[in-house]
Write a protein that binds this DNA or RNA. Structure first.
Lengths: 195, 195
DNA sequence: ACCTGAACACCGTTCAAGT
DNA sequence: ACCTGAACACCGTTCAAGT
């Protein structure tokens, strides 16, 4: 039974979900696929590339065209989609943050957000910087949120410090930062229209 | 010549500056201090703790009381101090991001920013969430900026994609996101005063 | 085309024993 | 109190050789 690229990718994602990013090693992956470690290097040149492919997979779908009708709800929609995508797999946010780094800002999601900002009245360059700013916020916030979740499940937190009972809850925290950001964009856009 | 905690810390920072985070290993550090790897574990319980101490060192000073007089310039001052601190050592932003994660939001810097927000008219809880939002942005932006710098020095980029000639330059990019954020805070604060 | 076997050059951490 | 010696249990990656 021969392996293909997709099998390796699926196996890697399965390990990620079951054991987390720290335990996603090439050797462990090889074992789970009943293959020698070296075999993986026929399908992926190195681990970094494999992680990149997982990151792409996690993010796929988050950059679909927005269906809302005003620019601010459109950005909100994309932002929530991205957060949901990052939270959809164990350590998803950490993996994307560690792997993508400066590539999130070379992503289709960035273009989508920038496009919405242009429609809101921002010049191209401002729109791109605005998209980057939002992406940094979402990634940071979500990495943090997911790290707390994990700490919680591992019991490293006192019960009343549990993020599950945290007030405000993670989604509200996310919404707060998102609205703060949108207010900033509104102001910048309004300025542009006035001048 | 006996080693103490500070010697280990200094040695680690020296390796960080010269060879970068990826090459900062316990074994390499031990060699540079002319000591066996196990010796380090008398001074630090594990690598994570050592990295945490380096992160604290990098961040020390960034949380001094602001000297500006309006709340927005105060936040700007703290934000720039944090960025400068992260950029002050090779891979500083990456190290802090990887090590601190959800601890940046348990930092004195967070309290400083929150305090300024409270003085600007925000309720305590909003002030904390606002501080977190800013911290996520600064960290993300600075990690990215530093990663590009490194890619550049390593020659992994085409000349015209060099961040050194990027327009706008990194500092202006940073300033853009910061102002976007401050506009958002202004709006939230104004809302609070009106109602 | 795809994989094995086996090696290379590393890691972080532990711990009895030494001084 | 502080360190050595030596081991344990791993890593990612390479590559001749096999099928």
């Amino acid at each position: 039974m021969q392996l293909n690229r997709q099998d390796v990718l699926d196996g890697a994602i399965a390990i990620l979900d079951e054991y987390g990013l720290a335990d996603l090693t090439m050797r462990r992956l090889a074992t789970s696929l009943h293959v020698q470690p070296g075999a993986l290097y026929w399908h992926f040149p190195n681990k970094q590339t494999l992680l990149g492919a997982i990151a792409d997979h996690i993010l796929s779908g988050a950059d679909a065209p927005p269906t809302e009708d005003s620019w601010d709800t459109q950005i909100g929609q994309i932002a929530h989609r991205l957060r949901d995508a990052l939270l959809s797999r164990r350590d998803g946010a950490e993996l994307v943050a560690a792997t993508y780094a400066s590539r999130l800002t070379t992503n289709h999601i960035r273009e989508r957000i920038a496009a919405v900002c242009i429609r809101a009245g921002l010049p191209r360059r401002d729109a791109e910087l605005t998209a980057d700013t939002l992406l940094y916020y979402i990634l940071g916030q979500t990495v943090d949120e997911q790290a707390r979740l994990h700490m919680d499940s591992v019991g490293a937190l006192t019960p009343d410090a549990s993020p599950l009972f945290e007030s405000p809850d993670p989604t509200s925290r996310f919404e707060f930062g998102l609205q703060l950001f949108l207010d900033g964009v509104r102001h910048t856009a309004a300025d542009r229209i006035r001048h």
